[in-house]
Amino acid sequence: MNEKAATDYAIHTDKLNLWYGTFQALFDVDLDIKDGIITSLIGPSGCGKSTFLRSVNRINERLGYVRINGSIDVMGKNIYDPDVELLQVRKQIGMVFQRPNPLPLSIRDNVLFGYNIHMRKERASRSQKDEIMEAALRQVLLWDKVKDRLNARATELSLEEQQKLCIARLLPVKPTLLLMDEPCSALDPKGTEAVEELIWELRGQYTILIVTHNMAQARRASEECIFMLMGKVVEHGQTQDVFVTPKRKETSDYIEGRYG
């Protein structure tokens, strides 16, 4: 693969197959996900969208029975190469989960957790760290709500605030790619709206890949859309095109709610 093609895409996969034991969850997935935009992954439960997301930062492999072949290039580098450092992969790629998972630490320590791990050589002073923390919290639209209680436990925040915090703590290490696995499914409609607004705010600064069950959300919050079914990519295109003029019958069936 030439360098040019590699850098145009944030994620490029080539014949990606994945098995959980003997069950094959992904079949020959070839995807090119563009740099700097929001791409949504939709499809019925069990279609492999979360599995795909989890392969991109290699958290699947903690389950000992997962087998992969094919390649996943992130920013032009195959992350399954033996010389790739897992910790660097995880630094470059942030992940947000279905259930907010703040650490049982203060808000401040949560935001700076990744920073303290990855940027130990920087030897930032306390005031520099405070600036970094403020910038991250401002970016997720949380600063005004928490600035007076930065030492409070993060687990005391509301779910919506926790999820924003989980996004905020990814930012100080300057990731290029954010993976979001149904980031709003544990939130109420108001929280969903707030987090979607935030995702939209982050557009352009990060490449965002978001898995969702919520059609309306995919439509509102993404620029490109991938529809998956039974471990295969069925359709990938501009979100408007996928929703308005789907090329495949399976896609239109799913979008119109005939199954899933």
Binding site: L103, P104, G114
Partner: peptide, 20 residues
């Protein structure tokens, strides 16, 4: 979930143990 959160931010096992 706390361990997962740490690992996904790129913390090593030892960092996860010591800090969380």
């Amino acid at each position: 979930a706390f361990r997962e959160a740490c690992w996904n931010m790129g913390a090593t096992r030892w960092q996860t143990i010591r800090k969380v």
